[in-house]
C-alpha cells in the first residue's frame, strides 16, 4: 500500500471541495472496497478523506411518502430497517444476499454503489486493463469470461458491476442525491448513475470529480411481491453469476432488473409489458442484443429461468 495522509471531513460541502481540488484524494467510508484495492495498489490515493463523521447515517421519510437513505447508512442497518423490510423487501433481500455479516456491518450505501468490478483481470496488476490504465487494452476479451458481461459491453471492456443493492435500487427507481464542490445539490436517477463501458470504461458513474453522495431516495412504495434471486457458485458469500430483482403485482405486471450481466444493473422498461405473459416473453426484450462467449452464454438461460422462478413465486 502506498503512503497517504488521512483527515476527517467536517461538512459534506468541504469534503466535496477538498476532493475536487486534489486529484490524489479519495473519500473513504466503510473502506471494504477501497482498502482492498489499495493493498493491491490498484487504487493509490495519496490522501484519504474520511466521510464517516458527516452525520449522513439516518433513514428518514420523504414528503412524498418515500424514504431518504443517508449515504453512510450501513448495509446491515438498511436491510434491517422495519420500513424497508415492509415496503421495499427487494432491497433488504438484495443487501442480505451480498457479502458477509462482517462486511455489511461496515459497508455503506454510497460505498456499495461505487464498489468496483470483480473482473479477474482488473484485480491482476500484471495484466493490461482499460479500467486500470485507459488505453492499455482488455485482457478479458478472448480470456476467461465466465463471470463477465453479456449485455451492453464494448470492445474496450466486458466487466460487470458487482453490487446486489444497486440492482434492487434500479427496480425501485431510486435516485442518488449529491452535493458538489460549490455546494450545488443534484439528484441523479439510478438508471443514469452507472454507465456502460463504451470507449471509457474507467469512467464508471455520472458523478463529477469531487461530487459527494449524500443520500439515496426511494419513491413511495409500489406494493407487489418483492424478491431478489441470486445465483452464484456457492450458497452464500459469493458474487452473483446472475441475479434478478423483481416486484410483481397480482395481475402479473411488474418490474425486473438483472445483476451480474452488465456494467450496470440491467433493466429494460419497454420489455416489462410482456411480464404477464411470463419469463420467456419478458426475456426476449430484456436480453435483446446480448453478446456471449462459449463460457458465459449460460447466463442468458440462467437469467430467463431465474425470472421464471420469481414469476412463479409471485403467483404464490
Amino acid at each position: 500500500m502506498r503512503a497517504f495522509s488521512y483527515e476527517r471531513a467536517k461538512s459534506p460541502r468541504e469534503a466535496a471541495a477538498a476532493l475536487a481540488a486534489d486529484p490524489a484524494a479519495r473519500f473513504i467510508a466503510g473502506g471494504t472496497n477501497l482498502l482492498d484495492l489499495m493493498k493491491l495498489e490498484i487504487e493509490t490515493p495519496a490522501r484519504l478523506i474520511d466521510v464517516n463523521g458527516l452525520k449522513l447515517d439516518e433513514i428518514t421519510p420523504t414528503k412524498d411518502g418515500g424514504l431518504r437513505i443517508g449515504a453512510l447508512v450501513r448495509n446491515t442497518d438498511l436491510a434491517a430497517d422495519k420500513r424497508v423490510r415492509k415496503d421495499y423487501g427487494v432491497l433488504s433481500r438484495a443487501l442480505l444476499a451480498g457479502a458477509s455479516g462482517q462486511l455489511r456491518n461496515k459497508a455503506t450505501t454510497a460505498g456499495n454503489l461505487l464498489q468496483r468490478t470483480r473482473c479477474p483481470y482488473f484485480y491482476d496488476t500484471n495484466m493490461p486493463c482499460n479500467k486500470r490504465t485507459p488505453g492499455a487494452g482488455c485482457s478479458a476479451i478472448g480470456g476467461f469470461t465466465r463471470t463477465l458481461a453479456v449485455l451492453g459491453a464494448s470492445e474496450a471492456c466486458i466487466a460487470t458491476h458487482p453490487s446486489d443493492m444497486a440492482v434492487a435500487l434500479r427496480v425501485l427507481d431510486a435516485s442518488v442525491e449529491t452535493v458538489g464542490p460549490d455546494g450545488a445539490e443534484r439528484s441523479i436517477p439510478i438508471a443514469d448513475f452507472h454507465r456502460l463501458p463504451g470507449e471509457t470504461p474507467h469512467v464508471e458513474t455520472a458523478l463529477a470529480r469531487g461530487e459527494l453522495i449524500t443520500a439515496v431516495t426511494l419513491p413511495r412504495p409500489i406494493g407487489g411481491v418483492h424478491a431478489y434471486r441470486k445465483v452464484r457458485d456457492r450458497a452464500s458469500y459469493a458474487f452473483a453469476l446472475v441475479s434478478v430483482a423483481s416486484v410483481i403485482h397480482k395481475d402479473g405486471s411488474g418490474r425486473v432488473a438483472l445483476g451480474g450481466v452488465a456494467h450496470k444493473p440491467w433493466r429494460v422498461e419497454a420489455a416489462e409489458a410482456a411480464l404477464p405473459r411470463g419469463a420467456k416473453a419478458v426475456s426476449e426484450g430484456l436480453l435483446a442484443g446480448a453478446r456471449t462467449t462459449s463460457q458465459n452464454a449460460f447466463k442468458l438461460t440462467l437469467a430467463e429461468r431465474a425470472i421464471g422462478a420469481a414469476v412463479t413465486e409471485a403467483r404464490g
Binding site: Y6, I28, G31, T32, L35, D36, K39, L48, T76, S100, G101, Q102, L103, N105, K106
Partner: peptide, 22 residues
C-alpha cells in the same frame, strides 16, 4: 482482504473484518 473472517473482532458491539479497516 475481507474474504476469510479470521480477523473478525467486535467494534462498538458489531463484528467487522479488522483487516479491512484502518
Amino acid at each position: 482482504h475481507g474474504q476469510c473472517g479470521a480477523c473478525t473482532v467486535i467494534v462498538d458491539g458489531r463484528r467487522i473484518n479488522s483487516c479491512l479497516s484502518l
